[in-house]
């Protein structure tokens, strides 16, 4: 396990001095429901990508290819916004 720093070794006032650090925070463990994509139904409109608050929609060559489950919190916004009902929220344990 990583040894945590003491109070004399950390930046003042709780600042995070490195930019772009949110990616290091693995919020995927917060999830209760996970989004599952029906590739057949998806027309790659990318509305899910626009709405996802955690940039967890993975897009390759302008096509929706899946989810970043390390960071997706399972909020379900993508499923609610999908005009093709191509995303289903599935209870983690039942998957």
């Amino acid at each position: 396990m990583e040894k945590k720093k003491g109070w004399k070794e950390i930046p003042l006032g709780g600042l995070i001095t490195e930019a772009g650090n949110a990616a290091e925070y693995e919020t995927g463990s917060w999830r209760t429901f996970k989004p599952v994509l029906d590739q057949e139904a998806c027309n790659n409109c990318l509305i899910c990508w626009i709405f996802c608050p955690d940039t967890s929609i993975v897009v390759e060559d302008e096509e929706m290819v899946g989810f970043d489950y390390v960071h997706c919190k399972g909020c379900g916004i993508c499923a609610a916004e999908c005009p093709k009902k191509a995303i289903e929220m599935v209870l983690e344990q039942e998957e």
Partner: peptide, 14 residues
């Protein structure tokens, strides 16, 4: 840099 981020049981005390 980031000001005022979440700070749990790992660093709040420090």
């Amino acid at each position: 840099f980031t000001v005022g981020p979440l700070d749990f049981h790992d660093y709040y005390f420090e």
